[in-house]
């Protein structure tokens, strides 16, 4: 899986591409830790180019959600489609993490 990070104003966008499985956890974890230290207003994880996600990846999202909310940073996900959306729904992360159809909407914070 490929992980890239870009910034739009005070929002960090962590873009994932490919299959997000156990092998991808270290790279994703590192990217999220870096962004946590950057103290941005919001971190958006972009799944629009992802074809598979499992729970070790969602566990990283949850872990950073816990730390970020303590520090006043918002965490959101965007671009969930097909199997990725089914994976997100079955772990019920939507109960507490905002999911946006597009990155643009996630950056704006408006659905």
């Amino acid at each position: 899986m490929k992980v890239t990070v870009r910034k739009e104003k005070d929002v960090s966008i962590v873009e994932l591409e490919g299959e997000a499985d156990l092998a991808a956890v270290p790279a994703f974890q590192q990217a999220m830790q870096t962004e946590a230290k950057a103290r941005t207003r919001r971190v958006v994880v972009d799944f629009s180019k992802v074809t598979f996600v499992n729970t070790p990846i969602w566990a990283v999202v949850v872990e950073h959600y816990q730390h970020a909310t303590e520090k006043g940073t918002e965490i959101a996900v965007a671009g969930l489609n097909g199997r990725v959306e089914a994976s997100f729904n079955i772990v019920r992360l939507g109960d507490f993490i905002d999911a946006f159809p597009t990155v643009a909407e996630a950056v704006a914070g408006k659905k």
Binding site: T55, G82, R83
Partner: peptide
């Protein structure tokens, strides 16, 4: 169907990920 196929693949991956860990 597509959704269930994805979930079955996910479920097996979860078992095997746990074996790895």
């Amino acid at each position: 169907d597509e959704k269930t196929s994805g979930l079955v693949v996910l479920g097996c991956d979860e078992v095997l990920s746990n074996l790895c860990k």
